[in-house]
Design a protein around this nucleic acid. Structure first.
Length: 251
DNA sequence: AACATATACAACCGCTCATAA
DNA sequence: CTTATGAGCGGTTGTATATGT
């Protein structure tokens, strides 16, 4: 049972918006506010899909949009945020007043990707392109019993994975369900550990690696040291002031 | 000048999530 | 709890413009 379409496609305009359509939409939202997008086109006298109206308003007609070229500071902020958040464009946009997710996404794909490639940085991983692969934990869900025995996740108290045969891989032996986990790239010169000269081989628990060292889940010694914001590996840069994850929520 | 190719960005599509009935 | 619906998100496509041959 599929969903009903968001609008009557047969009677809606598509493609570029005209000046008249823009004016109608602006006038309607000024008078009535951003209400129900589904019913807005009809109420505003627009032959457009509600989704299309929403997109047009949010991305181009909203009065608080900045427009214009991105500054060098915005570039660097986007790069930093993308290294932390990945393709979460709406979250990234939330940290850049006056910019929209669509605008940032387009800007990333056209400008910043190339900029990073020119710097020798892989835009998807933010690691140097020629760097040998970092420490990677591979969790294999492959179907063969021998491989399950090699990495028995449940025996390490990990994520509660069962070691039963996976019905998916049993049915689809060619399906690769390997999950690869690795810490985010930290340039060695720029990101020394903030643990007072602790060696880089220090093992952190999951809670500390997420920047919540005082958590009950903490199973390493780092989390018990005084001063929550000054201890532990600053995974995601959450405690360094670069990014306050609590402020990432959209308004 | 004409054509081909690259680039930029507006807009659409399909999906997931949240929520009300 | 289930289902229907609207909103929002991210990926992709379409098209106008710029640049190269």
């Amino acid at each position: 049972m599929g969903r009903s379409p968001c609008c009557e496609k047969a009677h809606t305009n598509k493609g570029a918006w005209t000046k008249e359509e823009d004016d109608r939409l602006i006038a309607y939202i000024r008078a009535h506010g951003e209400g129900c997008w589904r019913s807005l086109p009809k109420a505003a006298g627009l032959l457009r899909c509600g989704k299309s109206c929403r997109l047009r308003w949010i991305n181009y007609l909203r009065p608080d949009l900045k427009r214009g070229n991105f500054t060098e500071e915005e570039d660097e902020l986007i790069i930093k945020l993308h290294s932390l958040l990945g393709n979460k464009w709406s979250l990234i946009a939330g940290r850049l007043p006056g910019r929209t997710d669509n605008e940032i996404k387009n800007y990333w794909n056209t400008h910043i990707r190339r900029k990073l490639l020119n710097r020798g940085i892989d835009p998807s991983t933010h690691r140097p392109i020629n760097e040998p692969s970092p420490d990677v934990t591979t969790i294999s869900f492959a179907a063969t019993v021998k491989e399950e025995e090699k990495i028995n996740i449940s025996s390490t108290g990990g994520f509660g994975c069962k070691t039963e045969k996976n019905p998916v891989t049993e049915k689809c032996p060619d399906l690769n369900l390997e999950l690869r986990i690795s810490p985010p790239y930290q340039p060695q010169a720029e990101a020394p550990l903030k643990t007072g000269g602790r060696s880089s081989s220090t093992t952190l628990c999951f809670a500390c690696s997420l920047g919540i060292p005082d958590s009950e889940e903490c199973s390493c010694s780092i989390g018990t040291s005084s001063g929550s914001s000054s201890s532990g590996y600053d995974f995601l840069g959450l405690t360094s002031g670069v990014l306050d994850y609590r402020g990432l929520e959209m308004k």
